[in-house]
Amino acid sequence: MKIKLALIAAVLTAGSAFAASEADYKAAYAAAEAANAEAGKLRNQWIPTATALAAAKKAGDAGDFDKAIAEAKEAEALAKASIYQSISEKKLWKDLEIR
């Protein structure tokens, strides 16, 4: 009996540690939005970033925070790739130039 209770407790705490919360989603979404805004300053936002952000918001509004967080993380990764692209292109563009 004791063991059983401990198990249930363990499962419950594990559950609360892993099931996504609204707060986690909001944080992930804010991070993605910030990265995309940075890409905007570099004049290089990507369409799929916006798509993933919209999907994150939709899932978040529907209360599906697991999906919302996954989409927000995807959006953040895409935005970071676009930032990286802009920064590296500051030098790399010259390699394409017709001279």
Binding site: N44, A81, E89, W93, E97
Partner: peptide, 16 residues
């Protein structure tokens, strides 16, 4: 000549 977008294309990628 600057590559952009998820496809990593510049104007030159297509038109040069």
């Amino acid at each position: 000549y600057t590559r952009r977008g998820q496809l990593n294309f510049s104007c030159a990628t297509c038109h040069v």
